[in-house]
């Protein structure tokens, strides 16, 4: 474990050196997608009292959606890419567990995602004249969400590991996009029952909490139940994700499909 950070940081530095040219188109893509979501939600909800608070609410959902996609990319997608190339088997020949390698990778890539999202928030803030994060406790919510996000990514990585068919994997990817769409919908249009169900998923719960903190200006100490729910579900997702990944890894070894090159 001692040199794992050294190894992954070196790999990340190499990766980031090739990134500057790719980041600009990525930021433009992010903004166009956000603009489309924002525009669609205005059409769905209609003329709201404050379009700025709607933009802020959309932006908060978008930030969590972005983090979720980034976590999936740095764990599940990254694992599948390595599996197809043949390097995934070599990672198994390490003196550290495969989970540790991908977790450290995800944490290091989180730095990259934070840099991108901060730049993006500044751009959106300037264009739409909105301040998205007004409450410092938002950072705490994001931090608590992290294990849940990684757990979700490991869960997906486990499912992908057990699949041989490329078609099945494509369908899974589509399903994930669909499942994460509610993050982009302002929860006020959802029924209380649906909202209650969503609150047991850390991604949705964190979006709802961030909106309460930053838009409705409700202090964190008045959201004790929400907070506890977020902590518990986030840890639970993390544990379940790792367990499923472990089971999948063992099954893949049994079937001899760790490498699919």
């Amino acid at each position: 474990m001692k040199y794992l950070w050294e190894a992954e940081l070196r790999r990340f530095v190499k990766f980031i050196k090739n990134m500057p040219t790719a980041n600009l188109p990525f930021l433009i893509f992010l903004y166009i997608l956000f603009w489309l979501i924002n525009f669609s939600s205005t059409l769905v909800i209609g003329n709201v009292e404050s379009s700025k608070s709607l933009t802020a609410a959309n932006m908060l959902g978008y930030v969590i959606w972005f983090f979720a996609m980034f976590s999936i990319s740095s764990i599940a997608q990254n694992m599948e890419d390595e599996r197809m190339q043949g390097t995934f088997e070599h990672l198994h020949l390490s003196s550290v567990s495969i989970k540790s390698i991908f977790l450290v990778r995800a944490l290091i890539h989180a730095i990259e995602s934070i840099v991108i999202i901060v730049i993006f928030i500044l751009i959106v803030g300037l264009i739409h004249r909105v301040v998205v994060f007004t409450n410092v406790y938002s950072l705490l919510v994001l931090l608590i969400l992290l294990p849940g996000l990684y757990g979700f990514a490991f869960l997906l990585a486990g499912l992908v590991l057990m699949m041989r068919s490329k078609e099945a994997k494509n369908w899974l990817a589509i399903l994930i996009y669909v499942l994460l769409v509610p993050l982009l919908i302002p929860e006020r249009i959802l029924s209380p029952a649906v909202r209650e169900i969503f609150s047991y998923f850390p991604m949705f719960q964190s979006v709802m909490m961030l909106r309460k903190l930053n838009i409705d200006k409700i202090p964190l100490n008045l959201m004790e139940v929400d907070f506890v729910k977020l902590v518990i579900t986030s840890i639970l997702f993390f544990v379940i994700g790792l367990l499923i990944f472990d089971i999948a890894d063992k099954k893949a070894k049994k079937k001899g499909i760790l490498g699919m090159y």
């Binding site: 001692k2 040199y3 794992l4 050294e6 190894a7 070196r10 790999r11 190499k14 990766f15 090739n18 190339q85 043949g86 390097t87 088997e89 070599h90 990672l91 020949l93 390490s94 003196s95 550290v96 390698i101 490498g259 090159y261």
Partner: peptide
């Protein structure tokens, strides 16, 4: 048959990377 190394990294970087993973 498998790729024993990362193609986007140099030989030196690969050696250091896999050595790190082996402690």
């Amino acid at each position: 048959g498998s790729r024993n190394l990362y193609w986007h990294m140099t030989v030196r970087e690969n050696v250091y990377y896999f050595a790190n993973l082996r402690g």
